[in-house]
């Protein structure tokens, strides 16, 4: 039986008592070893979800359970040991004077011994392509480089769950792809659960499941393919689908048969090959 990793049970949240509900009766379950993406427009409540998971915020109604532990004031430290989180703006998460010290910070806090620490720092910096910057000052790095270091710091403490909260928004497209590749690789190797919070639908193709948020509610839970088929509706809630999905939908409109919603260029080329071969 699959262990539940993260579960939201009828969670509602607002930032102040008078304020509007940011999350309204949100329920979902993320089993361990599953890659889930949460997408939604700006203000849809997706980042609030991340903050509820590691106890930066607490639900006003309902319950958030992480690896069997309900998230409360008493359990946050236990929960945070297991949940590594990378935020959008890396400037807010640096403490060390060098890249190496910064990655070491989390390890020191957990009392990891020196030899292990050196290996962990080395491996994680290598994974994000920042090994050459070990002795640089983090605040002098460019935005994208900083974010890679932040991701390395999280990888170094080998958490059970990694949450990327729009963590690639500041990277260039290539860096973005590399980070997603790296994170997915680590996820598969170490059996981690990965929760990606994003509004870039190019990032959800690798997810097993997608939760689409709109105005504080779960709007849809589906596979990436199912999500990409709903172009119009997604655009109405401020999102957009990748180029390949758009082109496939346009081809469908002019009666070029597409047997399944393609996720990448290769799948679409295959569909076109079939069309080309059948008269």
């Amino acid at each position: 039986m699959k262990k539940e990793c993260i579960e939201f049970r009828n969670v509602s949240f607002r930032y102040s008592e008078e304020g509007p509900w940011v999350l309204k009766n949100v329920s979902f379950r993320i089993p361990a070893d599953e890659g889930v993406a949460i997408i939604g427009h700006n203000g849809s409540g997706k980042s609030t979800i991340a903050k509820l998971i590691n106890g930066l915020l607490f639900a006003d109604e309902g319950e958030v359970v992480v690896l069997g532990t309900p998230v409360t004031e008493e359990t946050i430290w236990e929960v945070r040991k297991k949940v590594g989180m990378v935020f959008q703006n890396p400037d807010n998460q640096f403490v060390g004077t060098t890249v190496r010290d910064d990655v070491a910070f989390g390890l020191e806090n957990r009392g990891v011994d020196r030899s292990q620490m050196i290996t962990a720092i080395d491996n994680s910096l290598r994974a994000v392509g920042m090994i050459d910057y070990m002795l640089h000052e983090p605040h002098r790095l460019s935005g994208g480089q900083k974010q890679r270091v932040a991701i390395a710091s999280v990888l170094a403490i080998s958490p059970q769950i990694i949450i990327l909260d729009e963590a690639t928004a500041m990277l260039d497209p290539k860096g973005r792809k590399e980070i997603m590749h790296t994170v997915n690789e680590v996820k598969d190797q170490q059996g981690l659960s990965l929760l990606t919070i994003t509004h870039d639908l190019n990032e959800i193709t690798q997810a097993d499941r997608v939760i689409v948020m709109s105005k504080g509610e779960v709007w849809l839970e589906a596979t990436p393919r199912e999500v990409f088929a709903r172009e119009k509706e997604l655009q109405e809630i401020g999102l957009d689908i990748p180029f390949v999905a758009k082109l496939a939908n346009e081809l469908g409109k002019v009666d070029v048969p597409i047997s399944q919603q393609p996720l990448n260029h290769e799948e679409l080329l295959e569909e076109l090959w079939t069309y080309h071969s059948n008269k």
Partner: peptide
């Protein structure tokens, strides 16, 4: 545009 490309592909790649 993407929709123009869809039509182009249909024409260019038709089997016959």
């Amino acid at each position: 545009t993407i929709s123009e490309l869809g039509i182009q592909l249909k024409e260019h790649l038709k089997g016959d």
